[in-house]
Design a protein around this nucleic acid. Structure first.
Lengths: 250, 250
DNA sequence: CAGAGTTGTTCGGCTATGCCGAACGATGCT
DNA sequence: AGCATCGTTCGGCATAGCCGAACAACTCTG
């Protein structure tokens, strides 16, 4: 890749910084973080406000993300081919398993959730589309890591979420081997206490893994007595195979 | 507002163009649309790819939006104060009315949906957060238009969606007057056949309308015999008032 | 209540940034 | 095969836009 445009790259860095936390940031704060003069940064911010990517708080003068970004992000979902093809199967999977269904892709070392179907008959859930899941502590992530051609994200320290999270790199590698050989991944209370998840890989026509689909629910329902109900595993694998097949026939 | 940075503005224009349709676009196509030399445009695209805002199709070489935008857009939702405060009330409204609940803001002449709670006991719905609704053909939009300090978006032609859509500017103005005097808006099959909606304004501490909340559902349930059930109207107004009050006490 | 330290914003000069147009190789369509 | 169009590269010139200092408004502190 050749040279990139300075100001655009800087603008993107500003947006990432604003997105990294719920707090609104000021010009001086951003300038310090990026090591740029205040005046320079103000110019970029001014244009970002002009195009609607950033909004300025009238009272404090500080900056936050703008509403245009929400619309652009949603547009991405329409463009994403995997999601378009997989939506119907995710609905069916949620219906059959009576659990919430999830679809994710590997993105910058995280699992990006690109679809999420609520568990039937349960309205108090928040939608997780667009959020990140950790690769080493989610079933979706394990599937994606196991089939990732470049072993990114493995050199990063394995952050513990519960006492069951796999934090030893060697143990994780072993787990990924298991995922590769049997073709699906499980995760029992490694991300959230009381919740377990199952996932299987979705492949493109060339056989490359482009995403993963799975379900997530309470341990009492999915793994009573500690062992995963294989019935749920087959639901997930069926859905994954169906989507893989539908990607072959455009 | 002073001068803005050329390349950033151009980058934003590219993103808007890519978001405007589901089709992926090529360099030449974009260059023609924006009236820029191919070489110039390629440079901006290269940086947009580098920061993850745009992805390039390996096979065709054409460009589409990138996954980073989805994550940024979702981050906007966390930042949005109105949404953060209103989520719980929207859940309650959906539960009481047993219909889907919606929250929207005025943005670039459209209603931007910033929250959406599915109708209880109905799993086959797609989430509409981040999408646009027309201002003149939705209950949310009527509320926002009626209290918009600048009467934008009214000079635009009123596109018909069903045979009940208000297309006459004078008739719309009359409707907005009604909305202002009685404090809520109705919409009966003006956007989609068989669906009606109700909405009420959410105000910030200064009394300015910053958003609207409402419900949407089948005409048989919400307006049997053609007249809106006032019970639902009071649910919506209660929710709107509750959110308005909660914005006053931070 | 004053003043020291912030904050966001403006502006003009200098230079490095990045815009442009032409040329290249690959691909697709007739 | 031929032509047209694609995405990409490159170097020279000029201008876009970076920088640093100065500004006014504001918030804490002593």
């Amino acid at each position: 890749m050749g040279e990139t445009i300075q100001s655009v790259e800087r603008a993107a860095a500003i947006l990432r910084l604003l997105a990294s936390g719920p707090r609104r940031l000021g010009v001086a704060e951003l300038a310090r973080a990026l090591g740029l003069p205040k005046g320079t940064l103000h110019g970029i911010l001014r244009t970002l406000v002009h195009v609607g990517f950033v909004e300025q708080d009238e009272a404090s003068g500080k900056y936050r993300l703008g509403a245009t970004l929400l619309h652009l992000g949603t547009s991405y979902l329409d463009v994403n081919e995997l999601r378009t093809r997989a939506i119907n199967w995710a609905d069916a999977l949620a219906g059959r398993s009576r659990e919430s269904a999830w679809i994710g892709t590997l993105h910058e070392g995280h699992v990006l959730v690109i679809h999420h179907v609520f568990r039937p008959d349960d309205s108090l859930q928040t939608l997780q589309v667009g959020t990140y899941l950790p690769t080493h502590a989610s079933a979706l992530g394990k599937v994606l890591l196991a089939h990732d051609p470049y072993g990114e994200a493995l050199d990063r320290p394995l952050e513990p979420y519960t006492k069951h999270t796999i934090v030893d790199p060697a143990a994780l590698e072993e787990e990924l081997d298991l995922v590769r050989t049997r073709g699906w991944a499980g995760e029992t209370e490694e991300l959230t206490e009381g919740e377990v998840a199952i996932a299987a890989p979705i492949k493109d026509p060339r056989g490359l893994v482009v995403g993963a689909i799975g379900i997530r629910g309470a341990v009492e329902r999915l793994a009573p007595g500690g062992a995963l109900h294989m019935e749920f595993v087959s639901y997930v694998r069926d859905a994954a195979r169906a989507i893989t097949r539908s990607l072959e026939h455009p």
